[in-house]
Design a protein around this nucleic acid. Structure first.
Lengths: 348, 348
DNA sequence: TTGTAGGCGTTATCAC
DNA sequence: GTGATAACGCCTACAA
C-alpha cells in the first residue's frame, strides 16, 4: 500500500537499456560506458531513485545493520556510549538497532535472537549484571556473527571476543590513592557483581592502592551490591560498623550519588567526615553539591572504538572468504582520568 | 560468506512438497492440511528454520522496523521514553532503529532520510530545539510514512501529526502554584526555545498561576535558554537583578540541577533563600541534596503511548487500502505529577 | 488441499 | 560495453 518508489526497472525502461546496465551504472562498476553511466545517474537523480537496501541485502547477505545491547537505556553513560557508536556507524554507512536488556540475562538472550532475526551484520554487547556465562553469546560465533563486548566483560571472554574497556584497575588504583593522599585512612569500597570483570579489576586496583600504602584490607569495608538498589542501606550498614570507614569508593557514579544522598541526609559532612569517589565521570558529577570526585571513563570513545573493532571484524569476515586465516581478537583498553571534585577534598 | 540458514526450499525438498505449501504451513494459512502443516512445522523446528525477514519485507513492503529520533541519547528522560517505546514495539513484533539528532535540525533531517532508506514502517520523533518548522517531517507524509511526535511538538503540527505529550501547562501551573503556596513571591522562570510547544505551554501555566494569585508578571524574571548551556550565567544574572527572584522554576530537571549547583556554590540556601522546582521527574531529583521538587513526566508511558499511536496508524494505513478514509490524528496528553522535594519547602 | 508460475528489487554470471 | 538469465527467500494468484 506504500507509494512505490522508482526502481532500476523503471530507469531501464525509460532509457531503453537493460537493468543490468542500470545496475552497473548505479554502483559505478568498471565496465560501463561513462556516457550511459551519466545518463542513468541523471535520470536516477531526476526520478529520485533510491536503491532498495532490502533487495540489495537479500542478494548480498549483508544488511549494514548492527545490533547494540545495553543493560539500561536510561543510564547516561550508556547514552554517551551509544552516541559514540552511532557516530562511527553512520560514517561507515551502517545503521544500528538498539535493545535494552534491563540487566536481565533472559532479556539479553532474547535480544540476541531478535537481532539475529533481523539479520544484523554484527552485535555490540555490554552484558547485564546477571550475565555470569557467555553461552548465548558464543552461539553468535557459530552463526558467524561478529561480536564485540564493551565496558563490561567477563574473564572467560578473553581470546574469544574482542572488547573495549577502560583500565579499570588503574582507575580504581588512582581513585583510592587519591583518597589516601587526602588523608583518609579507612576506605570502604562498594563493589559490584563478583563475576563482572569491572568489579574484579576495580577491586584489585583498590586493594593494590591500600597495599602500596600499607593500609590494611578490611573485609567489612568491601561490599558487593548490584549497582542499583539498596545502596542507601549498604551505606548505613557501613557507617554502623564498629570501626566505620572515613571514605567510600563507589563502583560507579550512580552508586556514588546514592551514597552521597544517604550521607548528606544523615547530616554527615562530605568530605570532612567522609570522602566519596565515584567511577564513570557522569555529567552530574560536576553538578552535585559537593561536586563528586570520579574516575572518568571516555564513554563516547568506548562506543567509537567498539564500533570500529566490530566493523573491522565484519570486513575481515567478508574479505577472508578465500584465505581463511583466523581472526585476531583484540582487547582495546582505554585510559581513565581521575577528576577530583569536592567530595574527596578534606580541605574543601 | 555467512553460514546459510535453512530456507523454505530446503524444507520443501526434504518433505518432497512444494515451497508454496511450506510457505502456507509456516504462516498458518487457512487452506492447508493440518497433517502436512504439522510435518512442516516439525521439520522447521528441527532444522532451526527462521523466516527471512528480508525476503518477506521485500515482497510485503513492510519491514516491521520503526525509526526513533531523539535529541539526545544521554539524557535519562529520553532513555526512559525509548525503553517504553521498545517494550511496546517488541510485544507487537517490531524492532526499532534509533537516531540521535544532537539537537541539530540538520542531523534530524539526515536521520529521517537514513531511516527512510532503511524502509522503516513509521517514525517517532521528538524534535530538536532548533526545529522551528516541520517541512522535512511533512515530507514523510507524502511518502506515506506514519509519524508520531512525542514530548516536544510544534503548534503547527496540530491536525497533521499525532502526538503524545504531557499536560505541560497544568504541570507548570501546579509547580508555580506550589511555590506560591510555600510563600515565595518573586518567582522566576528559566524557559526554553520559544517555538517549542512545551516552552509555550509551561510558560503559560506559569503565567496563569501568577495571575490567579495576583502576582505580577515580571519580564526580567523570565529568561529563554536553550535548555543546556549557560544556565549558570543565566542564574547569576537573575540574582543580580535589582529585585532578584526568591524562587526559580526551571523548564526541566537538567536546567534545575545547574541552577541548584550555581546557587549552592554561591552559598545561597535552598530552599530558605531561594526555592527551586524543575520539570521531568528525573531519577536524580530524589538523590540531589536537597532533593529537587519536580513535575514528573511519565517518560515510559509517553514512549508506550507514542508507539501505540504509531502502530495504529501503520495498521490503518495498510488496512485502509480499499476504503480510503482519511486518518484521524490524535493528540494524547498525559497527566503530570508534582513531586515535592526539599528544594522548594521553606520549612525544610 | 496442493502445485505452478511469476514477481518483489538487486546483483552476478554468463554470453554476445 | 551491454544484455539476457538466473539467483536471493518468500508470497500470491491461479490452476489443478
Amino acid at each position: 500500500m506504500k507509494k512505490k518508489r522508482t526502481t532500476i526497472k523503471d530507469l531501464a525502461r525509460r532509457l531503453d537499456i537493460s537493468v543490468s546496465t542500470v545496475s552497473r551504472a548505479l554502483r559505478d562498476a568498471p565496465d560501463i560506458n561513462p556516457a550511459t553511466r551519466q545518463e542513468v545517474l541523471d535520470l536516477a537523480q531526476k526520478l529520485n531513485y533510491k536503491r532498495s537496501t532490502l533487495a540489495t541485502s537479500l542478494v548480498s547477505k549483508r544488511t549494514f545493520n548492527i545490533g547494540v545491547i545495553v543493560p539500561e537505556l536510561s543510564v547516561p553513560f550508556f547514552g554517551h556510549v551509544i552516541a559514540g557508536i552511532q557516530e562511527t556507524l553512520l560514517s561507515k554507512g551502517y545503521q544500528m538497532m538498539i535493545c535494552q536488556s534491563s540487566e536481565k540475562i533472559e532479556q539479553e538472550q532474547k535480544s540476541i535472537e531478535l537481532l539475529m532475526d533481523h539479520h544484523v551484520d554484527g552485535i555490540l554487547i555490554s552484558p547485564t549484571v546477571e550475565t555470569n556465562h557467555l553461552e548465548h553469546i558464543k552461539m553468535l560465533k557459530e552463526e558467524e556473527v561478529p561480536v564485540v563486548l564493551f565496558d563490561r566483560t567477563l574473564p572467560e571472554a578473553n581470546g574469544i571476543f574482542s572488547s573495549v574497556t577502560v583500565d579499570d584497575e588503574e582507575g580504581a588504583f588512582n581513585a583510592t590513592t587519591h583518597l589516601i593522599h587526602e588523608g583518609y585512612q579507612r576506605i570502604a569500597h562498594i563493589s559490584g557483581p563478583k563475576h563482572l570483570q569491572i568489579t574484579q579489576q576495580r577491586l584489585k586496583g583498590y586493594k593494590e592502592a591500600l597495599r602500596l600504602h600499607n593500609l590494611p584490607y578490611v573485609e567489612d569495608w568491601v561490599v558487593h551490591g548490584d549497582m542499583h538498589s539498596n545502596i542507601g542501606r549498604i551505606t548505613q550498614q557501613l557507617l554502623a560498623l564498629p570501626t566505620p570507614p572515613d571514605a567510600i569508593f563507589a563502583i560507579n557514579d550512580p552508586v556514588a550519588f546514592q551514597v552521597l544522598h544517604t550521607l548528606l541526609s544523615m547530616k554527615i559532612d562530605v568530605p570532612k567526615e567522609i570522602g566519596v569517589v565515584g567511577y564513570t565521570g557522569s555529567d552530574m558529577a560536576k553538578l552535585y553539591h559537593p561536586t563528586l570526585s570520579t574516575v572518568r571513563q571516555p564513554a563516547q570513545s568506548i562506543g567509537k572504538e567498539a564500533a570500529l573493532l566490530l566493523l573491522e571484524e565484519i570486513d575481515s569476515l567478508w574479505d577472508r572468504r578465500v584465505e581463511k586465516q583466523p581472526f585476531v581478537y583484540r582487547n582495546r583498553v582505554l585510559p581513565t582520568e581521575l577528576v577530583v571534585g569536592q567530595s574527596s577534598r578534606r580541605n574543601f
